Amino acid sequence: MNSDWQLIKLKSVDSTNRFLKDFISETRARNPVVCITEQQTAGYGQQNRRWQTNADSAIFSIAYPLSKKMPIPGLFSLQVASLLHKSLTNLTSDALYLKWPNDLYNSEGKVAGILIEQVIDFDYQALIIGIGINRSPDQLTASASNVSNFCIEQLIEHFLQQFKHDGFLHFSPFALLEYWNKHDLFTIEESVHLITKEDLNTRESGEYLGINPNGQALIRINGKITPLSSGQSSIRKVSLSVTQ
C-alpha cells in the first residue's frame, strides 16, 4: 500500500463510512485513509437503504481529504464507478457492466455498490467513498449476484493506482463518457422502469437515452425527455437478463 495512504483494518464495525466520517472529523487527516472490515453490522446505501453483505463480501471505505471548498464535478460518481469497474475486471476478468449512477452488475444482477458522502466542517472537507462487493451468492437478495473471488487488498491497491493514473477529481469527461457507453448496462432506447425515492413501489416506464455531460441519465417518458440526477430516482431493467 502506498505510504501516502493510511490503512485501518477492523474485525467488525457498524459502517465503514460512518467510522471514517467520525475518524477524520476528529483527526482532520490530511492524507487519504482506507478502512477495511470483515463484518459490517449496520451498513447503509443510497437513501439509507440497508447495505446487504455476507461473510465473503469485500467491504471498505476511503476518506479522501480535499482542498477547502473544492468543487465536486457532476460526473464524479460515474468516474468512481468506472475506476472500480477497471480494477475489478482487471483482477477477475469477469464481464461487468456499469449501471447509472454508480453500481456494477453482471448478467445475473448487482455485484457492487458505491456510496459517496462528504464531511464538511468549517475549514475541512473530505469525501467518503464506501464500496461493497459481493464475492459469494450466499445470503444475498434475489436481485444480487457476485463476482469471482479476489484479494481485497490487491483490489484497493489497483483502485488507488487508478485514482492517480486516470484522475480523481480532474479527469476527461469525454473519455469517461466514452468508457461508460462502452460498458453501460443499458442500451440506447431500451425500455426501463423509473423508481422515485418518494415511491419505491411505483414503476413508471420509459426509454433510456444515455448519460448527458452533467452525469444525468436521460429518460424519455411519453415523448418527453427527463434528466435524472443521482439520488432523485433510480432506473431498473425490465428484465434482469443482460443481453450484450
Rank of each mutant, 00 (worst) to 15 (best):
S143A: 13
L98N: 08
T53D: 02
N90I: 09
Q162L: 15
E178A: 14
Q46P: 01
W51T: 01
D123N: 09
N54I: 08
T141K: 10
Q46I: 04
S107E: 15
D138M: 12
H193R: 13
I195T: 05
K86A: 15
L218E: 03
R236V: 05
D138I: 15
T226V: 15
Y64V: 05
T92V: 14
I225Q: 05
F19K: 02
G215Y: 05
L75I: 09
R18P: 00
I219D: 01
K99M: 07
W180E: 06
Q39N: 06
I8H: 06
S143T: 08
E198M: 04
N146D: 05
A126I: 03
L140C: 08
I188K: 06
S143R: 08
I129H: 04
A144F: 15
D94C: 13
G210R: 09
S61Y: 06
S191I: 03
C151A: 14
N2L: 14
S25V: 05
L228A: 02
Q161V: 15
T196K: 03
S15W: 14
K237W: 04
K224W: 03
D56L: 12
R203P: 01
K86P: 08
Q40F: 11
L160G: 03
D4G: 03
L228S: 04
Q216T: 03
G130F: 12
V242P: 00
E38L: 11
A42S: 14
G43K: 03
D184T: 01
P71W: 09
S107K: 11
S229W: 09
L185R: 11
F186M: 08
S230G: 11
Y64A: 10
E189F: 10
D121H: 07
S191L: 10
D4P: 00
R49P: 01
I156T: 07
K11H: 12
L194V: 04
S15Q: 05
P65I: 07
Q6W: 01
L169S: 06
N17I: 13
R220H: 00
K86L: 15
I156C: 04
S145P: 05
I24K: 00
N134M: 12
N17F: 14
S12E: 12
S77Y: 04
N48S: 12
L200H: 00
T89S: 13
S148H: 13
I156E: 04
W5E: 01
I188N: 01
T226K: 13
R135T: 14
S77Q: 11
A63H: 02
I221F: 05
N222H: 04
A81C: 15
Y179D: 14
D121G: 02
V13A: 05
G223I: 11
G132I: 12
L218N: 01
A144D: 12
F168H: 02
N149D: 14
S172F: 13
D184R: 00
N146F: 15
T37Q: 01
S172V: 09
E198D: 09
K164T: 10
R220G: 00
S145F: 15
S136Y: 09
L104T: 06
F150N: 05
S233C: 06
